[in-house]
Design a protein around this nucleic acid. Structure first.
Ligand code: FES
Ligand code: FES
Lengths: 144, 144
DNA sequence: CAAATAGTGGACAATTTTATCCAATATAAA
DNA sequence: TTTATATTGGATAAAATTGTCCACTATTTG
């Protein structure tokens, strides 16, 4: 469904969001341990999220990754997926034709469109904040 | 969503099904041209489909790939996806945890489960035959 | 200013996926 | 039985994704 990079990106964002809720900046190492991901690779992904204004990062001692109140409220899952995996989720064809195209649809276009539209809607309405709150309550897990 | 191999596999199956409807066996070359895929790679995929009894293949002159009436009626999209991409569509976690697990769900489990269940249902109810019939009528395309 | 800390960026390596090539096998037809 | 044809299987290669290493920059603190 999503690339590994995107999965790490989502998990990292949820962890950073949750820590930001209790006013904590987290280091790369913190993130990698919390979501059980390779640190150096995770670093690249966090850079991308940072450049896309999904999280912010501060250098130096007392530095680390965090999310401000505004970001916490406006960042949806879709923003992360788009930042990392691009628009393929939105306009890609289920059978790999150049682009999804109503006028010259692939044989599974109708079936796929329905599902993809729902996925899209889900991504665009689910906030990282809401997921972070559940995670904080211990209802969900970022590693196993 | 699916691997490239799986996309080729589905497109190939639809083409083979459609040609079988008018009692034609097709060669590897025919398939590769019809779906615009690399022939040698497509060959591997067709082998896998053949071993999974989704299509049949005959060697030698007058050989080629085809689907019998029984296969045409019983093969669903899901059979193809399972044969090529395995069970990850069914039990994989949306955020990349080892397995999807109700007891220790990832933060997006509920949202993903809903979408994945619908995808699953779609894959399990859509027959290759129905897609082949639409394709035959010119309602859909296998390449662009 | 010096030292310690933490993210950044670039090069590189490993792995997985996708793609190619060719000899071997099976089969039908002449 | 010879020949032509078409799939099969194994070895490789190319490309994309995932993962690692290390020197550099920015920043805080003493
Ligand atoms: S054309 Fe294939 S999904 Fe729309
Ligand atoms: S645990 Fe992640 S999708 Fe079910």
């Amino acid at each position: 469904m999503f690339s590994k990079a995107c999965e790490y990106g989502i998990r990292a964002s949820i962890f950073i969001a949750e820590q930001s809720l209790i006013d904590r900046k987290v280091s790369l190492k913190d993130v990698a341990e919390a979501i059980d991901s390779p640190a150096a690779y995770t670093s690249k992904i966090l850079q991308k999220l940072s450049r896309n204004n999904i999280i912010n990062s501060d250098k130096g001692p007392t530095g680390g990754f965090s999310m401000g109140k505004k970001e916490l409220e406006k960042v949806k899952l879709g923003s992360i997926v788009f930042a990392i995996d691009g628009e393929s989720i939105y306009n890609g064809c289920g059978l790999g034709l150049k682009k999804c195209n109503e006028k010259m649809p692939c044989p599974v276009h109708n079936q796929f469109k329905m599902i993809r539209d729902q996925l899209k809607k889900m991504l665009e309405t689910t906030t990282v904040l809401s997921l972070a709150v559940d995670y904080e309550k211990g209802f969900s897990f970022l590693k196993r």
